[in-house]
Design a protein around this nucleic acid. Structure first.
Length: 594
RNA sequence: GGCCCCAUAGCUUAACUGAAUAGAGCAUUUGACUACGGAUCAAAAGGUUACAGGUUUGAAUCCUGUUGGGGUCACCA
């Protein structure tokens, strides 16, 4: 049983015995005792004053007395102001430590039988992935792992936006100026190649608009009537009619993009259980529009467009079907949600999408509810903040976008330089080194992004490379490599440490580590509830930091008392075990040496 | 303009459902490798938690207002 539940239970009994009152669990607040006070856990006594009718000190002392009398585990107490600090006996810590060390997948919570779908990434096929996508991908991936650690079955899905006017723009520019260029002929990664033609289109378009306005047309009119835009729109129409030439080109260019994406995903170490394509889902939802009309919750205008009036709920009127009968973005979202909930029995559906779409998801849930779907409440929009540069938002038009592949390469080079400079890995093969540089650069990048609360806007300065010292991924990786180094030496000397020897007394620093290890499953649960891998990241850092302090002034391998030696090695391996599990949730690997 | 989100040290950030002196890292200054890995550790300095009120034994946290920043309100996705 975890200590806080244990204390609450006992404190309840104490209050009941002393004051004849039964208070709810919420009246008992337990926290880890602060460093500057003596004790292990602290009970806040303020909420209990109304039944004790005594001063905070007197109440704390009375309860402390009772607890010390009536529980074997609590060995001492002191009261400071309204805080009752309790000390636990050494045998209690030894027992707790043993059970943590013995657990083979410590931190993994028992199966819940629930299935959760997580949709993330969801890129457009007209440009390569950038830093914003990286945050999305890393969040989606780590939330998925986190929910798995919480005992849920998780399905990771990607919805690729592979159709629409933007793809046609790339296609058109390629036809006009590409001279048959392919990824093979140019040596460019497919997604970058297609992205370049998207940029090319905009150049052509802008020039046309300029010429038209110079000829006396208003800017607005020119933007609507530029010939290349007309051509792109025409192409989209052909695509929708299934024109074989257009479809063939569309397939060819998309396949280039997918090859490029696959490379980036694989570099990032992420994958999906299923990929959906908008070209196959964009017609979904039309049936729901009819259903809504039949139910009388949607309304049709004279021009044929269909709307849902949400003004009674404090929102606006929302368009669901255009006058020409074609669907808009949300129509498809309604349809895919219904499809997914009926195909899989989902207990929750998480969409990892930026906070600019908060309103969209509010509307989506509301309309689904109005359509009578109970599961609308199980939709969770994991809304994350934008990644900003020192000069503000990334803008593709101004070329300030931080490209994902570039960033990964830069990070790799930094990891390489740093590692080679330190010169600890000279005896590794080239292949091992390459793998290590990947592990370290990804560790730094992933931790940098994940440690920040998802909902906050985060700042990224491309000029300052991501740190490898302090509160960083490599700090935790280094801690692990160091532990492994000691454990390797220990096994080289045939020292076994599979169980805690009887009768060892843990030092205060060791108890603090055990306390930290003990709260790991609780952190997983808390993080899962909050859908926030950042909580796991910060926990891992706390543990690594605490361990480094312990390590610094504790003799391990030269300890002559065999029991103490075994105890310490067991503690080391337990810390390593928890670090590995925590970082695995974040998608970060911990190297054996670095 | 309506609605939503945010504001913590020079910078990046933490603080579970309100709780002890608001924790860290970077940068700055200083100290520690003839013990197991110095990508580490120890120490100093750095805060009116944007501002003003309110609720409470107790507020970064809850309420109201103000200021500043962002998002959104498309027959775009």
């Amino acid at each position: 049983m975890s200590p806080d539940i244990f204390i609450i239970e006992k404190a309840k009994a104490a209050v009941s015995a002393l004051y004849g009152a039964d208070l709810p669990d919420a009246s008992f607040q337990v926290q880890v005792t602060r460093k500057e006070f003596e004790g292990d856990y602290t009970l806040v006594v303020f909420p209990l004053l109304k039944v004790s009718r005594l001063s905070p000190e007197a109440t704390g002392n009375a309860i402390g007395d009772w607890l010390k009398e009536n529980t074997a585990e609590i060995s001492a107490y002191n009261t400071v102001k309204g805080f009752l600090n309790l000390s636990f006996s050494n045998s209690y810590w030894a027992g707790l430590f043993s059970s943590i060390a013995a657990a083979d997948d410590f931190g993994q919570l028992p199966p819940t039988g629930k299935t959760i779908m997580v949709e993330f990434s969801s890129p457009n096929t007209n440009k390569p992935l950038h830093l914003g996508h990286i945050r999305n991908n890393l969040l989606g991936w780590s939330v998925s792992r986190l929910l798995e650690a919480n005992g849920h079955k998780v399905m990771k899905v990607n919805l690729v936006n592979d159709r629409g006017i933007h793809i046609c723009k790339s296609m058109l520019a390629w036809l006009k100026t590409g001279n048959g260029e392919t990824p093979e002929s140019s040596g460019k990664k497919g997604d970058h190649l297609v992205g370049d033609y998207y940029v090319r289109f905009n150049e052509i378009y802008r020039q046309e608009v300029e010429e038209l306005t110079a000829g006396g047309m208003s800017k607005e009119e020119a933007e609507k009537n530029a010939p290349s835009l007309k051509e792109a729109q025409n192409m989209l129409l052909k695509w929708e009619q299934g024109d074989s030439e257009v479809v063939a080109l569309w397939k060819k260019m998309n396949s280039w993009v997918y090859a490029g994406f696959d490379k980036t995903y694989s570099d990032l170490g992420i994958s999906f259980d299923r990929t959906y394509y908008e070209s196959q889902t964009y017609l979904l939802g039309k049936a729901l529009v009819q259903k809504g009309l039949d139910m009388g919750i949607f309304e049709k205008e004279a021009d044929g467009s269909v709307w849902c009036d949400l003004t009674a709920d404090g929102l606006d009127r929302k368009l669901l079907l255009r006058g020409d009968g074609t669907s808009v973005y949300i129509t498809q979202d309604l349809g895919t949600a219904e499809q997914r909930f009926s195909e899989y029995r989902l207990d929750e559906h998480i969409y990892v999408v930026g906070n600019e779409q908060n309103y969209h998801f509010q509307v989506l849930k509301l309309i689904l509810k109005k359509l009578g779907f109970d599961w609308a409440d199980s939709i969770y929009h994991l809304s994350y903040g934008m990644v900003e540069l020192p000069e503000g938002k990334m803008k593709s038009r101004e070329g300030t976008v931080v490209d994902a592949d570039d960033l990964l390469e830069k990070m790799y080079n930094t990891a390489r330089e740093t590692s080679l400079e330190l010169g600890k890995i000279d005896n590794m093969t080239e292949q091992e080194q390459d793998e290590l540089f990947r592990t370290l650069s990804l560790g730094a990048l992933k931790y940098f992004i994940i440690k920040v609360d998802p909902k906050k806007t985060m700042l990224f300065d491309p000029k300052e490379s991501i740190d490898f010292n302090g509160n960083t991924g490599p700090f935790i990786q280094y801690t692990h490599a160091r532990i492994k180094s000691i454990l390797r030496k220990a096994s080289g000397r045939n020292i076994s440490y599979d169980a805690l020897p009887q009768g060892v007394e843990l030092s205060p620093k060791e108890i603090r580590l055990v306390k930290l290890l003990d709260i790991f499953p609780g952190k997983i649960a808390e993080a899962g509830q909050a859908h926030s891998p950042a909580i796991v990241a910060n926990y891992a850092y706390d543990l690594a930091k605490e361990f480094n302090q312990y390590y610094h002034d504790t003799i391990i391998l030269k300890e002559e008392d065999e029991k103490l030696l075994q105890c310490r090695l067991l503690l080391l391996s337990s810390v390593a075990k928890v670090l590995v599990k925590a970082m695995d949730i974040l998608g970060i690997k911990l190297p054996e040496r670095m």
